[in-house]
């Protein structure tokens, strides 16, 4: 059976910006696949190439074994696409937009009405379907976009950062819906810069950073591969630099501690990587007590996806996110896009 989506050595530049340097990953039929990466990592660029909106400079793209470059129309038929930025026609009602969408995908006239009604019901849009889209909230708009993307019962639904800017409740609605969609057999490809989102939803994921894939696999695999456990320690609520340094020094000499990092942003809390085992916490507390340092809080956890990203890039996704968003010139990109 061919992969639902296959992307191999994809490259795409905008002028002299290499948005995608080399991206490869495979999505298996029926799974939710997450593309995780901070702002500017190249997620949207990858998705635009997949959905035949832009032409890659190099690389292979296949959907169900069909090349998106050679047979774009066949690929368009197989994909549903929910864009990062919703582009509603404010004057139309939700139902009118769905009717337009149904015609663009050439649904037979006699099933269109029923099909639209089914999606309106499944997505809980009954109350809104006959109102103008201009009156919708962000969450409702996303649901309408989901309905539009699924109208033609595509094999693969592609969602680009579907929950950015949504309130928590709307986000949960989208998550639950994507799980139902997977249960019904639709393959889902979702991009996000929210770790929790990918962790909660994805069967497998690829982490991308600056246009390259830095890890691919199941969330649990990636975390296990890192090895060790993570320990977060606060000596006091706000620890002084001297005390933090002192603690770091002592903890580093413990045999089961692999690394100690002082997190200045978090009031000099200490992040430790320790060998997996049960008694680390009590030993840590004990060695601190020996030099008369208190313990305000102490917690041990399995590595998270953020730790995977951190290990590969040396910074957390949140930090990368903040750094990237301050350097991007969105106006210029928009202009470039129009060329």
């Amino acid at each position: 059976m061919s992969a639902a989506v296959l992307i191999e050595n994809l490259q795409k530049s905008y002028g002299d910006v290499q948005a995608v340097k080399n991206i490869s990953f495979t999505v298996q039929p029926g799974e939710i696949f997450g593309l995780l990466g901070p702002n500017g990592a190249g997620k949207t660029t990858t998705i635009r190439c997949l959905c035949t909106l832009s032409k890659p400079d190099a690389g292979k793209i296949e959907v169900g074994g069909v090349s998106a470059i050679a047979l774009p129309k066949a690929v368009r038929q197989r994909l549903g696409y929910v864009a990062q930025e919703v582009a509603p026609d404010k004057v139309l009602t939700g139902r009118e937009l769905l009717k337009l969408q149904a015609a663009l995908y050439h649904l037979p006239q006699k099933i269109i009405g029923d099909r639209i009604q089914q999606l309106i019901e499944v997505l809980g849009l009954e109350e809104y379907a006959n109102k103008k889209i201009g009156t919708y909230s962000g969450g409702i708009l996303k649901r309408l976009d989901l309905a539009a993307g699924l109208l033609h019962q595509p094999e693969v639904l592609v969602l680009d950062e579907p929950t950015v800017g949504l309130d928590i409740e709307s986000r949960m609605v989208v998550w639950e819906f994507l799980q139902e969609l997977r249960a019904a057999g639709t393959t889902v490809l979702i991009t996000s810069h929210y770790l929790e989102e990918i962790d909660a939803l994805a069967d497998r994921l690829a982490i991308i950073d600056r246009g390259v894939v830095i890890a691919e696999g199941k969330p649990s695999e990636l975390k296990d591969k890192l090895g060790g456990d993570r320990v977060t320690l606060r000596i006091r609520e706000f620890t002084s630099d001297e005390e933090a340094d002192k603690a770091k020094h002592i903890l580093e000499s413990l045999p089961f501690v692999e690394e100690v990092i002082i997190n200045a942003v978090q009031g000099n809390s200490l992040n430790l990587i320790v060998k997996s085992g049960q008694s680390s916490l009590s030993k840590i507390e004990q060695s601190l007590a020996e030099v008369e340092l208190p313990t305000f809080s102490l917690a041990q956890s399995r590595p998270s996806l953020d730790d995977v990203y951190l290990a590969a890039t040396g910074q957390t996704i949140m930090d990368a996110q903040i750094a990237a968003s301050s350097t991007r010139d969105l106006k210029k990109e928009k202009k470039q896009q129009m060329k």
């Binding site: 129309k73 197989r78 019901e121 819906f177």
Partner: peptide, 27 residues
């Protein structure tokens, strides 16, 4: 959001169906 609909119905609505549009090659 979908409390009112049975899950089997949801399933049938959301299951992929490549032949829903008439086959574009022969049409």
């Amino acid at each position: 959001m979908s409390q009112s609909i049975s899950s089997s119905k949801i399933k049938s609505v959301l299951t992929p169906n490549p032949s829903i549009s008439k086959n574009s090659e022969q049409n």
